[in-house]
């Protein structure tokens, strides 16, 4: 763990039966940077995300998190209440399917305000104003603050999920294929939004994606995974413009041909 990293993992290994999901994986994340983890399905990227965020345990290895007071915490040794509290405040997790992280029978405002209420906010008017403000920031018409999410399109639901996650100004957000399942024009708009929010709020992101274009647009650094191993890592543009590992070369070339 260096002096400055926000999140560091060393030697993460995990097997599902005989299948290697993670093989001796190291990772570092600095404050305010976006790290993309790319690979095909089965590469282990989603497993890595789940292990880094404490949702899954590894068989071996350690993950350290540095809190705002600069204290280090072993993510898997943290007591469950502390980890849950972390997920509600300083951390965020954006799911591929927004329905997994939204209350569909609660208004948009209620969804966005929930983290604030969980953190002890008790002024209805101010909570609603914060929700309205955030809806505007994610480009949802604020007049829809009292509407139910089931009336929202897929892209809007994803933006609502992002608002709900960012409302407590987390320093670290995990994103699992945030634009998966959306059509191309909606994706582009969403990616732009994520990029500007992340930059403006100085949020560190671990972003899992199979789409190299998404990685290129959003990420400062990139990690390429294959069959549970990290085969290459470095600055996004460098890795994508001049791939060293054969597998990375294959990935990059298949994108160009598409």
């Amino acid at each position: 763990m260096t002096e400055e990293t926000l999140l560091s993992a060393r030697g993460l290994s995990l097997h599902f039966g005989k299948v290697p999901a993670l093989v001796n994986v190291d990772a570092d994340l600095w404050p305010g940077e976006v790290l993309a983890v790319v690979g095909e399905s089965g590469s282990g990227k989603t497993t890595l995300l789940n292990v880094l965020s404490g949702r899954m345990r590894a068989d071996a290895g350690v993950t350290w998190y540095r809190d705002p007071q600069s204290r280090l915490h072993d993510v898997h040794a943290m007591p469950a209440p502390a980890l849950r509290a972390l997920h509600r405040s300083d951390w965020g997790f954006v799911h591929q399917n927004p329905r997994d992280n939204l209350r569909m029978s609660v208004s948009a405002g209620g969804n966005v305000g929930e983290r604030l209420m969980a953190a002890g906010n008790r002024h209805y008017g101010r909570i609603r104003e914060a929700a309205i403000d955030w809806l505007a920031q994610v480009e949802i018409d604020p007049a829809r603050v009292d509407d139910m999410p089931r009336t929202f399109s897929g892209g809007m639901l994803q933006r609502l999920q992002i608002a709900r996650t960012l409302v407590t100004h987390p320093r670290l957000v995990f994103m699992d294929e945030p634009t998966g399942g959306l059509d191309v024009s909606v994706q582009a708009r969403l990616l732009d939004l994520i990029r500007s929010l992340v930059a403006r709020l100085n949020i560190a992101v671990v972003l899992v994606t199979h789409d190299l274009a998404v990685a290129r647009l959003l990420a400062h650094r990139i990690m390429v995974m294959q069959r549970g191993e990290v085969v290459e890592t470095g600055l996004t543009d460098q890795v994508l413009d001049d791939p060293q590992h054969a597998y990375t070369q294959l990935l990059v070339s298949s994108v160009l041909q598409a």
């Binding site: 209440p81 208004s107 305000g113 209805y124 909570i127």
Partner: peptide, 18 residues
């Protein structure tokens, strides 16, 4: 056990909204 009562406040918030 974790004093996680956010969902109850969300319920009250929804009442006021509705």
């Amino acid at each position: 056990a974790l004093a996680e009562y956010g969902s109850m406040h969300v319920r009250l918030y929804e009442d006021i909204t509705r």
